[in-house]
């Protein structure tokens, strides 16, 4: 079970180093766990694995498509590969290899695609990935997770290593605000109700879960009662939870650091159209925009992905005829 931290402004451990630490622990127990990098070991922290577990580290050079194929091949002989590169290079550069050598051939590739959405920050538009969820969702049986904090990302890495197939983890490299207490446990494919409420249902994923909780508090002050779900597993989606929790709500807000076209927003909408209850919906995310360079704060404002934006959109939605 999960529990929320008391102080939501507390910053957790760096997300990338949490992945690294978790992999190192897994490697101590299982020599078949291997990490693959494409010359971003300094960025991901995977260089630490190269030092601590040289026999379980594979440097591939700047060749992401090759890396995915190598991971798939190693998995055929029993290895449990965990690859890292920036999220754009996973889905835009190596998707054919992930798709065919990985998914279609029934091989295993665990993927940490770092710095999705606005978290590419100073790397700018060329490195910004809003489309990864949409692309990965089309891969049959793939598991997609947008992790919201260090506790969750550590749990997800461990969980992925138990499974066969294609597993995609998108998350910032940097430290983010804490959501969960250290002893929290999760279930893949199960959303977490973080806060109950009567009027509005906010379904968020990734580090924006913290902003969703902020928005819920701000709305509460305005007398609007909000329920917040952390939908960290975007695929398979917890359809039951959505169907249950939408009951009696006036509106649903989805909130993601990704394109709503094919993203969490679309996924939730697919469930809502099959609900008997009619409900107003607003998908907050990216539409028809490429990324750009800037600080995270600047980009969140520019892309309208702040708690204040959620508040504004919610009020607009409630007032809509």
């Amino acid at each position: 079970m999960y529990k929320l931290v008391d102080d939501r402004n507390k910053i957790g451990a760096a997300m990338n180093l949490t992945v690294v630490k978790t992999l190192q622990q897994a490697m101590n127990e299982d020599e078949m766990v291997v990490a693959l990098e494409a010359d971003l070991g300094g960025a991901s922290g995977f260089s630490k694995i190269k030092s601590s577990h040289p026999q379980q580290f594979v440097e591939c050079g700047i060749a992401e498509a090759n890396m995915m194929g190598v991971a798939a091949g190693m998995s055929m002989l029993g290895y449990k590969p965990f690859v890292h590169t920036f999220s754009p290079f996973v889905v835009r550069r190596a998707f054919d290899q992930v798709y065919l050598s990985g998914g279609y051939a029934k091989n295993t590739i665990n993927i940490y695609g770092s710095d999705p959405g606005y978290t590419s920050a100073h790397n700018g538009g060329t490195h910004t990935t809003f489309e990864d969820i949409a692309i990965m969702r089309t891969l049959p049986d793939a598991v997609i997770v947008d992790a919201c904090d260090d506790v969750q990302i550590a749990w997800v890495v461990k969980e992925f290593l138990k499974l066969k197939g294609i597993h995609y983890l998108r998350a910032n490299r940097k430290a983010v605000r804490k959501v969960y207490t250290d002893d929290s446990r999760f279930k893949l494919g199960k959303g977490n109700v973080l806060k109950t409420g009567n009027d509005i249902l906010i379904i968020a994923a990734g580090e924006l879960v913290s902003d969703a909780l902020d928005a819920a508090e701000m709305l509460q002050e305005k007398g609007i009662s909000v329920e917040v779900i952390d939908m960290f597993t975007i695929k398979p989606l917890d359809e039951e939870l959505i169907k249950n929790e939408v009951k009696g709500k006036k509106a649903v807000i989805t909130f993601e650091n990704a394109s709503v076209y094919g993203g969490l927003g679309s996924a939730v909408n697919d469930v809502l159209v099959n609900c008997p209850q009619r409900v107003k919906v607003k998908n907050i995310g990216i539409r028809d925009l490429y990324g750009q360079v800037g600080s995270v704060d600047y980009l969140k404002k520019t892309f309208h992905l702040t708690a204040a934006d959620v508040v504004e959109e919610t009020i607009k939605l409630l007032n809509r005829e």
């Binding site: 100073h122 790397n123 700018g124 538009g125 060329t126 490195h127 750009q292 360079v293 800037g294 600080s295 600047y298 980009l299 520019t302």
Partner: peptide
């Protein structure tokens, strides 16, 4: 360079 709204992003455009 790299400021929000700049015409000089880290990678050429």
């Amino acid at each position: 360079l790299n400021e929000g709204g700049t015409n000089l992003p880290s990678h050429p455009d």
